[in-house]
């Protein structure tokens, strides 16, 4: 356990000192802001929303920011073990008081930092623009209050909450590919190709089979995430949104799959030559 904490600490140290990750964070925020801005222009152009347009605007920006965050998470986690294997850091760690499973577990436990960082950057970028352009009151169209501000806030929170486990599972997936790869380049390429390939075939899958894979719950280019559905709901589409069964699936399935994936990554790291 102490080895896991030491790896967690050293990974934290490296992440916060990584200039490229700060640049990615700023980029995520900026992209979220631009997306929110285009969304606000569209909402204002339609003119049908009298109040509460800020929610949809903010969620559009956040979805875009989080989709970018997903790619950053995949690249970072995939580079992690394979890159450190290349540089010799893994060898060094296992000869200095760190067990092989701790190499994976420490890197898994660091996941909340980039995930919350991406979430915060997306939120700030989108919220600042939405706040400056539109309001966060109840959703009112043509004089009718479709959803109260409380209900809208609840939908946004639920959408976000149900999306986060998928991001952890994606991080774990990147670690597994990284554990299996000889070089950081091949790990990153493999991870991205597999994720994008799944994104491309997603639309041809039935809903039952689609939501058996954790990646379906993550924001992406072809978005089927709870946050994507929440973005439709806050625009007033009453036929959209996750059913209770799907929401509960989004809450536990990615965790279960993440555990299996991490177990596989630990097994690979335990058996491979470092």
């Amino acid at each position: 356990m102490t080895g896991t904490l030491r790896i967690l600490r050293s990974e934290f140290d490296r992440l916060i000192r990584s200039l490229s990750l700060w640049i990615v964070g700023v980029t995520v925020g900026a992209v979220a802001a631009v997306s929110a801005l285009t969304s606000s222009i569209q909402i204002l152009g339609q003119g049908s929303v009298e109040s509460g347009g800020g929610w949809a605007c903010m969620l559009d920006g956040m979805r875009t920011g989080l989709a970018l965050t997903v790619f950053a998470l995949l690249v970072t986690s995939a580079r992690s073990l394979a890159g450190d294997h290349e540089s010799g850091l893994l060898r060094m760690a296992v000869t200095r008081s760190v067990s092989r499973p701790a190499l994976v577990l420490g890197r898994l436990l660091i996941a909340p930092l980039p995930i919350l960082g991406g979430l915060l950057a997306s939120f700030l970028g989108a919220w600042l623009v939405a706040r400056s352009q539109l309001d966060f009151g109840p959703l009112v169209e043509e004089g009718y209050e479709i959803l109260s501000a409380e209900e809208l806030r609840g939908e946004v929170a639920l959408g976000l909450f149900a999306t986060l486990p998928a991001l952890v599972a994606l991080w774990a997936f990147g670690l597994l590919i990284s554990a299996c790869s000889r070089t950081a380049v091949s790990a990153v390429a493999t991870t991205l190709v597999l994720f994008v390939a799944f994104d491309l075939i997603k639309e041809s899958l039935s809903q039952e089979s689609l939501y058996l894979v954790f990646a379906s719950f993550a924001p992406s280019l072809s978005d089927s995430s709870p946050l994507g559905e929440a973005a439709q709901v806050v625009q007033g589409f009453s036929d959209r949104g996750f059913s209770d069964e799907l929401l509960s699936l989004a809450m536990w399935l990615p965790w279960a799959q993440a555990l299996l994936i991490v177990g596989a990554a630990v097994a690979v790291i335990r058996s491979r030559t470092l």
Binding site: S87, L89, R91, M92, R96, S97
Partner: peptide, 20 residues
């Protein structure tokens, strides 16, 4: 297989220095 239990009593220097 359990060198982490040496508790820091072992130092190793590899052919290629492992440095940041």
């Amino acid at each position: 297989r359990a060198l982490h239990r040496t508790g820091g009593r072992l130092g190793v220097v590899f052919d290629q220095p492992v440095l940041l």
